[in-house]
Design a binder for these strands. Structure first.
Lengths: 148, 148
DNA sequence: TATATTTAAGACAGTGTAGTCTTAATTTGG
DNA sequence: CCAAATTAAGACTACACTGTCTTAAATATA
């Protein structure tokens, strides 16, 4: 698994929110039901994104979470870095602690390229980009169909 | 972490063996000491590679393990598939079970390309390719220098 | 044949991720 | 002010991955 399950859920939830932005808060209960993710678990994940300043939360009736910035300004990379950290984009393919230009593992150059490609993909896609695809109804963020 | 630690260790051990091929068996104890990997843990990992037909083992004095085929004929992909399985090259970026051409997640196309690139890199590199680099002494398979 | 060497096999423990549950704090609306 | 709704926080459980240890089986050699 490239991304942790926690991160997968975080991304899916962010995409759900991005496709339902109407200036108000979306309740975590609703997201968890629509995406079939454990409510309590999702709450903890979204707390991380709130702590990191990617989302804003609000308690009480009509509370929930919403994106802290416009969906056009949040990339998948922002969310991945917040939840899984930068390891995916920095770690050695063979798991060596000390692997750099001057002291490379035998896969270093090729791996550097893959890591760059990976980072570029996640950085070049915003929540708005993918939300657009989801709204076009041919892309999905859950194993089951997601209704409004 | 892209590859499991078990897989990282398996790759490093295979590369060590490939750089020390002299037709005879290399003891796991020796590999574990040279690469600073727990002996018992490494034994279990190499048992997997033996079960999968990638290595051949032999018990008793002067026993150990060796490559079942020539280093030129074993790719990194062979070892990764044996230990971690094919998930890295098949799984959806968002962790969806049901994500395919007809029912893609919004990152499907881009992700497919990354998975292909990943697979190509691992498939195009044989143990011999990397052993050659290691012997040139500018590449390493351990955080510490590896002596003969 | 006896002993030392080495892998095989499996039980067991430690750690981190994933997931559940309960209680507290905040907010709205009657 | 009170009750309901909702996130925050933290304790707790389950499971997989990582790592350790012990015993068994196989092999070489003296």
């Amino acid at each position: 698994m490239i991304l942790s399950k926690t991160c997968d859920y975080g991304l899916r939830a962010a995409l759900y929110i991005a496709t339902h932005e109407r200036e108000h808060f979306v309740s975590i209960r609703r997201i968890s039901e629509k995406l079939q993710i454990s409510f309590h678990f999702l709450t903890k994940i979204l707390q991380i994104l709130t702590e990191k300043g990617i989302m804003i939360s609000f308690r009480g009736p009509n509370g929930g979470v919403k994106l802290a910035r416009k969906a056009e300004e949040i990339t998948l990379l922002d969310i991945i870095l917040a939840i899984d950290g930068p390891g995916l984009f920095t770690d050695c393919a063979l798991g060596l602690e000390k692997c750099w230009e001057g002291h490379p593992c035998p896969l270093h150059q090729e791996w550097k390229q893959i890591r760059t490609d990976l980072k570029n993909i996640f950085q070049s896609k915003t929540l708005a980009d993918l939300a657009f695809r989801i709204k076009s109804d041919t892309f999905r963020i859950s194993d089951l169909a997601v209704t409004t």
